[in-house]
Design a protein around this nucleic acid. Structure first.
Lengths: 150, 150
DNA sequence: CCTTGACTTCAAGCTTACTTGAACTTGTAG
DNA sequence: CTACAAGTTCAAGTAAGCTTGAAGTCAAGG
């Protein structure tokens, strides 16, 4: 098994389409050497970077943010244990926030049965922007603000 | 306070931009009457539909899916208690799935410290597509599949 | 040699959810 | 009456993340 992979091979192993890999390379997220023919040859550590990209996307990062994170990686190849430890802390927070938001949405589902509404007039779940207008417009309670503070 | 709201008033009360409201109307998600002048006049129940739309978006539905749900609503105005009860069950499942995915991602963060890798070669978190290839390509474990079953 | 499949680049297209701009009309305060 | 804010339509633009198509090159098998 060669040390350098073709784009097709890389696509198969990573589960990411070849066109996407070219796109990532264009964005500078991954790099390739070229065979004499001009065909891309990916070194094996690129697979780790791809895994990292896929993972980070699922955490909710944009490709731009991912590019920044990849730029910080020691040796610029694939995340080391130290890198991973740092990211672990940052991303855990992010994941927890998103989970908390989803929990709030779930509460909204059951509480709105309780109050029978989802009415912008009467329900505090539906209507913190109109009633408890502090904090700007929008149904802020679901989305992340603390319930009415005014 | 009039029973019919202008688009600006509706935007302020709902926290949704006027341009977005026009867009929703265009998609058939909300409806308006027209004043003699041609200006939109939104009936108050529209605020509930808007709240519904915002909520559903945060649950993760696309506007198209939301349109389908709105189409099922009794009286075609705003969700009743019965509607809400049905949705509650459906969406809870959806929310739970997403939360479960996020929990898996979190586990990945700490487990990969343990194994020190995120290597597509050796880590089962990073590499079920290459190692435990059943189930198609991609880092399936994080994303939703059960860990290696082959 | 010929075919087929994999690869190349570059530009353009796609989807979602809107926003922005142009050009124009209405409504309201003074 | 005059401003000026707020409304109208329609077309086009934006952002992210890719995919697709065109036109051509390269590699492997028979």
């Amino acid at each position: 098994m060669a040390d350098l992979l073709t784009i097709g091979e890389t696509a198969r192993r990573s589960g990411v389409a070849a066109s996407a890999l070219r796109y990532y390379e264009q964005l500078g997220l991954i790099a390739s050497e070229r065979a004499g023919s001009g065909h891309r040859r990916f070194a094996r550590p690129v697979l780790r970077r791809i895994a990292f990209i896929v993972y980070a996307q699922h955490v909710g990062l944009t490709l731009e943010e991912i590019g920044v994170e990849l730029g910080k990686l020691a040796g610029n190849q694939a995340p080391t244990r130290r890198d991973w430890s740092r990211l672990s802390k940052q991303w855990s927070v992010r994941i927890d926030e998103r989970i908390a938001e989803l929990e709030r949405l779930k509460i909204g589902l059951t509480e709105c049965i309780g109050c029978g509404c989802l009415s912008l007039d009467r329900c505090r779940l539906a209507n913190p922007g109109d009633r408890a207008a502090a904090g700007g417009p929008g149904p802020r309670y679901w989305i992340g603000d603390a319930p009415a503070r005014g």
